[in-house]
Design a protein around this nucleic acid. Sequence first.
DNA 1: CCTTGACCTTCCCGTAAGGGGAAGCCCCAT
DNA 2: ATGGGGCTTCCCCTTACGGGAAGGTCAAGG
Lengths: 130, 130
Amino acid sequence: MNIGQAAERSGLSAKAIRYYETAGLVSPAGRSDGGYRVYHLDDIRMLRFIRRARDLGFSIERIRRLLDLWRDAGRASADVKHLALDHIAEIDGKIAALAAMRSAVRELADACDGDHRPDCPILRDLEGLT
Amino acid sequence: MNIGQAAERSGLSAKAIRYYETAGLVSPAGRSDGGYRVYHLDDIRMLRFIRRARDLGFSIERIRRLLDLWRDAGRASADVKHLALDHIAEIDGKIAALAAMRSAVRELADACDGDHRPDCPILRDLEGLT
DNA sequence: CCTTGACCTTCCCGTAAGGGGAAGCCCCAT
DNA sequence: ATGGGGCTTCCCCTTACGGGAAGGTCAAGG
């Protein structure tokens, strides 16, 4: 099947599939006589794997390692778990940073009347308290 | 003062200051005879404003609007508050997305023994349940 | 006066993960 | 054979800068 069909069946875009190929995530697809990329069911399975991992927020680099483990019948589940825990730690870091910003902005917004007058604690904070 | 001093006093990098200039966030700095950018105390105040806003996660585009309001003596605090609330909504969206990923990955990781054996629910999930 | 070294300038490339779109083949049906 | 999709590669765009090259400027010291 062609890339359009592969995209539809995997839930990825054709652009993304080509990108994964150039990024070395998937090995170059075979080509038809006319130069079209050709995909088989095994490829679709791998593309769906990638899609699910992307949905879970895994980076391309980590997905590369997940795929390596997936293909390695002798893998240790500990290695997979380690990747997942690293990913969680990264997410936690991002959430913490966002939550800190959120509460700071929230406090400023709460202190702001939000009326037609120009006086605003938000701007006063940004101006600097020093 | 030169850009290095301005950077030090504002807490920004010289690169960032030049970037804000090309991005139209700040008006082009005056130049010395030798072509160096020259900054005054007012500029430092604005740069610190930008830095604080960046620390709070505001995008360049929103900071542009914040600066417009800051300079507008006749502004309504409601407009500033609106920008802040928009920002909070954006942060909330990101946090929600990250939290959803986190809990999904967490569940998979919890279900994984993490031993030397190859069997792993994480990979089974990524493979697709269908 | 000259040199050194720190500082500054512009310019270009790189980031993550693709999206958008152009120019040009390929393929199938009519 | 022709029309219209689908496919190809290629290049630019995104965020908010960081890194580094090539070269100009400035102040201090010999």
